[in-house]
Design a protein around this nucleic acid. Structure first.
Lengths: 191, 191
DNA sequence: ATCATATAAGTGAGTAATCACTCAATTGCA
DNA sequence: TGCAATTGAGTGATTACTCACTTATATGAT
């Protein structure tokens, strides 16, 4: 890794850690610089503004996660197998870089409006899988967004609990339960 | 309502709306004052700081919701009935004051650490109900926090989607599905 | 009722502090 | 020597909060 790239990566990692610990607005450029062991001005050689730094971090993960989920579910045929693949992939990403994952999780509401329409979107991947399964008659037809929200919520809320410290250890440990639970939600029939 | 109480309520409502629309850190005291049609200084007759205003709004709803959920589930005997009661109560609160509800939902991570240990907590109400049902053998035993997170996530993520505008209309419309789905999650058995 | 007085509510210009960002000067590597 | 990388004091803008003052309301005596 070149020196410049190393510096840029250090800025990103320092910012990420602070953003998760204290929030984006509450983190100062001076703090980021200190945590990265560089001068404040150096940040601006690599990023035009603090906001863009925060947005870049979010978008890169957002896109990469969407593509990973999309790849993961593609080979599977049945919904049940697709769920296993998606849940597994999601847990792996969470466990591989928890700080980045937590950042993405906690700051969706501030960045989601700035995501360009054509960018790959984790939520849409799941949504499409569910829509397809409904069309194929694998699960009961209902409001797709409702079903997607409920299924995603199973895993996402558990991840949120981990952020709050109610869990220790990786998410992957529970992948089996998450997949079972998500499936159970999608398979719910009208009473 | 006295004049002073009316003013205080106007400040709270103005702050709430702005906090939801633009975030707490991004909302200035000047904006709050303008939205409430009062002078900036007047805010400080009723609140010692912007942070306390934000925290008060959060805590009041947090406590009240916890107590409402606790009351709602008490009369029910079986878990299934308790779930119906909790989901129904939750949806009602969301639909009754959506702005306050969205504020609470979106700012959990910034305020949850400041909640005193002895305050009633919506999450704990649900957790206790689930723990009880596991002890009674109504549902399979497993990590209570995991089960609680997954069940809560079903409803909470749908509410989050509504914040993002993926839903229109009230949450209550879907209370039946939420309850069915939460139950399905809790009833999941080891494969 | 009228007025005098006391208290409460509201005002908004001013202040001190913070913070994102700039840039002229410096460093150190090829 | 030349150039990219880095530095950090400085800058202008923003913002939460203060406070001396004004206005509104309540009280009570005549």
């Amino acid at each position: 890794m070149g020196k410049a790239e190393d510096t840029k990566a250090r800025v990103e990692r320092a910012a990420l850690t602070l953003f998760v610990a204290r929030g984006v607005a509450e983190t100062t450029t001076k703090e980021i610089a200190m945590a990265a062991s560089i001068a404040e001005g150096t940040i601006y050689r690599y990023f035009p503004s603090k906001e863009r730094l925060a947005l870049d971090l979010f978008l890169r993960h957002h896109r990469a996660l969407a593509e990973a989920l999309s790849e993961a579910q593609r080979p599977a045929k049945a919904l049940r197998a697709k769920i296993d693949a998606i849940v597994g992939c999601y847990c792996d990403w969470a466990d591989r870089d928890w700080t980045l994952f937590a950042y993405h999780l906690l700051n969706q509401h501030s960045f989601l409006v700035q995501v360009p329409d054509d960018t790959p979107n984790p939520v849409n991947v799941v949504r499409e899988v569910i829509a397809q399964a409904m069309k194929a008659g694998e699960i009961p037809r209902r409001n797709v967004d409702l079903a997607a929200a409920a299924a995603i919520g199973v895993v996402l809320q558990a991840a949120t609990y981990k952020v709050y410290g109610r869990f220790t250890g990786g998410l992957s440990v529970h992948r089996r339960f998450f997949a079972d639970a998500a499936w159970a939600v999608l398979a719910v029939r009208e009473r």
